[in-house]
Design a protein around this nucleic acid. Sequence first.
DNA 1: CTATTAGATGTTTTT
DNA 2: CATCTAATAG
Length: 680
Amino acid sequence: MFDAAAVSAWLEELNAEQRTAVTHRGGPLLILAGAGTGKTTTLCTRVAWLLSEGVPAERMLLLTFTRRAAREMVQRAHSMTARVLPSAGAVVGGTFHSLAHRIVRLHACSLELPPGFGVLDAGDAADLIDLVRQELGHAASTRRFPRAQTMLDIYSYTVNAQRPLAEILAERFPWCEEHGEALAESFRAYGARKRTFGVLDLDDLLIYWRALAGDPVLGTRIADSFDHVLVDEYQDVNGLQVDIVRSLRHARCELTVVGDDFQAIYGFRAASARHILEFPQHFPDARTITLEQNYRSTESILAIANALSNQDQHGFPKRLWSERGEGAAPELAFVRDESSQANEVCERVLAAREEGMELRAQAVLFRTCHDSALLELELTRRRVPFVKYGGLRYLDAAHVKDLVALLRLASNAADEVSWFRVLQLLDGVGPVRARRLLDALRAPGGGPPELSRWADAAGHVPEHARAAATALFGALVDAAAGGESAGARVERLCAALVPLIRLRYDDGAARAADLDQLVAAAGSARDIREFVAELVLDPPASSADLAGPPHLDEDYLVLSTVHSAKGLEWDAVHLIAAYDGNFPADMNTGSEQGVAEERRLLYVALTRARRRLHVYVPVRYYHRPAGCDDPHGYGRTSRFLTASVQCLFRVTRTPGEPSPGVDGVAPRRRIEVSVDALFA
DNA sequence: CTATTAGATGTTTTT
DNA sequence: CATCTAATAG
C-alpha cells in the first residue's frame, strides 16, 4: 500500500543530521537549519515519512510564513505524499494568515462576526484608519500628526508584539511619542469601526484565531484535528503566532519547527529570533538538530556568509560548509553612481546569458523597491525581460481597489470604507455628498447602509451622474441577491464600474482593460466574498500574474527585494546599492538590534547565490530627502563589508571619476538670481 | 461642494 | 518622485 521504497530512497539521499531530523519520534523537534542546508527537503521528507508511519496527511499542518514559501512547500510536500500513497489526502498547509482565515471563517458565528465579514488588506486598513483620523480631527491639527500609513504600522506592531502602546512608541516610533494619547484613542475607534463595518484586518485574523484557540471547547477541537504541526521559518514568528503554535500542541500532537536565527529579518513585524532561540526552554523535552552542510553555494560564497555571521556574537554558532568547490571569486564592484551601476549589472547579466546562464537563473536583489528604478529603465531600454517582486502591487492600483471595494459591498453593505471609495467615483460626488448619500442609505433609526434604500438616496447624486449611479446600484442588488455564478456577478459589477473608471482616470481605457483579468480570475471562484479574501491574502504581483503562470516558457530576469527573496536561490545574484544607509538602512542604525537585523538581511541576500555573486557599491548616489543643496551623497561602503570581508572578494572599480557637468551629474547648488535690487 | 492646481513633505521591508 | 495639503476657480 505505501511506497516504502520511495521513502527509503529519499532517506538515503539525506545526510546523517537530516535523516535524524526526518525520522525523529516523540517530543518537540527544533531543526536549526543554516541557509541552503536542505531545510525544505528535510521538512517535506519528514511529512512523507510521517505518512508512511501511518499519520494521515490531512492530520498534518504545515505552517509557513510567506506566500511564496507556502506555495513551494505545500506543492512539494503534496507531490511527495502522493507518491508514497496515491490515495492520501492533502496536507493542510499555508501561511499563518491564510489558515487563520479558514478557521475564523468556519467559526465566524461563535466569534459574533457576520457571515459575510470582509478582510481588509493593508491599504484598506490605512483608509479606515484615515477615516478615523479625519473624524477625530487629527488631520487638521496644527501639530503634525502621523499619517494613516504610519498609524497603521504602529497599531500593527503593537498588536503583533502584544505589548503596551507606550512602550512601542518609545522604542520604535519616538517621533510620534507626543501623540500617544491621541493614537490610543484613534486605535480604539479603529477597532470599534471594524466591528461596525463587519471587517477584519490581517492582524485580526491572528487575534481571532488565538481567541478561538484559547476557548476550552473550540480550541480543543481545533487542536484535536491535527497530529503533527510543522512550522517553517520559525525565526520569523512573533508572540501572537507563538501563542497559536503553543495552543495547537497538546498531549497527542507533535511539533516540528525549522528555522535559522541568523535569517531573522522581520523584526519590523514584531517577529523575534528570541522565540526560536528559547524554543528549548519553552519546550523542555525538545530535541535540537543543527544542519550545517550547505548544498547551494560555492565555498567562496560561504566564506563571506560565515564572516558576516561571525560579526554577530549572539545566537547559535553555525559554520556553513559545502562540497561544491571554491568556485568563481565573488565580485565587489565599486561603481561610479546608480546609472553606472545599472549599466554594469546589465553587462554582467547579459554576458552570463551568453555563456548559457538563463536570465531566470539570475536575480538582482535590493533593500528597497526604488533601488531598482534606474536598472528597470535600463533593462527596458535594452529589451531585457524582467519580473519584479515586492513593491507596488497590483492591489495598490487605484482602479483595482475601486473594483474590489465594489465587490466587498456585494457581500457586506455595512462596509462604509468601501462605500466612500465607490461613491466618490461618481462625477460631482466628493466627501461631503458621499457622507450624505451614505446617511440616506441607512434605516431611519441609524444602523448600517442598506442597498434597498437607494431610491431614497438617489436625490443626493448630481443629475448628470445619476444614470451611472443607478446602474451601479442595480448591479450591486443583483450581485447581492445571488442566483448567477460568482464570475457572472463580478462581470456585471465590473461592467457597471467601467464607465466611471473611464471618466475618472485619464488613462481610463487602459485601466478598464486591466480589470478584465481580475474578472477572468473570478470566473473560477466559489463566491465573491471568498474571491476577495483570497485576493487579499494572496495578492497577485501584477495583472499578468492573474492570468496564471504566464512566463513558463519565457526567460526573464528576477528583480526582488531581499525580504521577498528569502527561501529562494539563483545561480547568480547581483546585490545592488550596498552602501551604508541601505545596508544597514539609516533608520535602523539607532539600536544595536536594528543593526544586527540589517546584517542578517545582507546575509540572507548573499546566501541566495549558488555560483556567482556580485555586490555593487555606488560611490556616489542620489538620496531622496531633498532640501539640501546637493541631492547626491558620497556613499560609504556598507559597514558590514569590513576590510577583512572585502578581502574575500575580487574588488573591481569602474574607470573614470565623475566628470561634473558632462553627463548630468553636476553637483547642484543654490544660486540666487534676482533683479530685485534694481527696484529697491 | 467639487475639481484643479500649486506647493510642501517624507523614513523601508510583508501577511 | 509621489502623495498629501491648502488654496482657488468653477
